[in-house]
Design a protein around this nucleic acid. Structure first.
Length: 157
DNA sequence: GCCAACGTTGGC
DNA sequence: GCCAACGTTGGC
């Protein structure tokens, strides 16, 4: 288990939930995760105080990194898995032993501009990022502090 | 809207 | 344990 601050990139489709929504809500459960790999990372590796880039996926030309947030809770059972009205109910999840977890995130800031996926691809510094690897489908992934810092720095240019 | 790349499910 | 069928993600 890591002790020092870790850095993440977290995807959301802006039509579902955008950085503007998080700015308004300030704090929000990052729910709806239905991927075991991602769940395990939230459970085993994420810690309160970790920082994350907010990434808009499936947003056409606006696809890219748009903001910064902080992890504000340990992983806990995602209530939406038991809600038939939610986008991703899971009837097979046992309330006694919930299958899916979420964490709370807190808004930190919106970048002065979108650092687009197209742009991210042009930086050699970032070429090892999982985000840029072909076939990557994780909606949350760890990134290096240097990558986190680099992207924020580019946003200011 | 298309489709490539993956993940999951379930029959055997 | 294999693998075909199916579902989802997400870039384009």
């Amino acid at each position: 288990m890591a002790k020092r601050t870790q850095y993440w990139l977290m995807k959301s489709e802006p039509e579902e939930y955008s950085i503007t929504d998080l700015k308004r809500d300030t704090r929000e459960p990052w729910d709806g995760i239905r991927n075991y790999q991602v769940r395990n990372m939230m459970r085993d590796d994420m810690r309160v105080g970790d920082r994350a880039l907010f990434y808009h996926s499936n947003a056409g030309k606006e696809t890219g990194v748009v903001g910064v947030m902080k992890i504000a809770s340990e992983a806990y059972p995602d209530p939406t898995q038991f809600d038939p009205q939610s986008a991703h109910p899971d009837p097979k999840s046992d309330p006694e032993n919930p299958r899916w977890l979420c964490v709370d995130v807190v808004y930190e800031g919106t970048l002065p501009r979108v650092v687009t996926l197209q742009e991210l691809k042009t930086y050699k510094t970032l070429s090892a990022m999982r985000l840029l690897q072909k076939g990557n489908r994780l909606s949350i992934m760890p990134i290096k502090q240097s990558e986190f810092d680099f992207i924020i720095k580019q946003a200011g240019k």
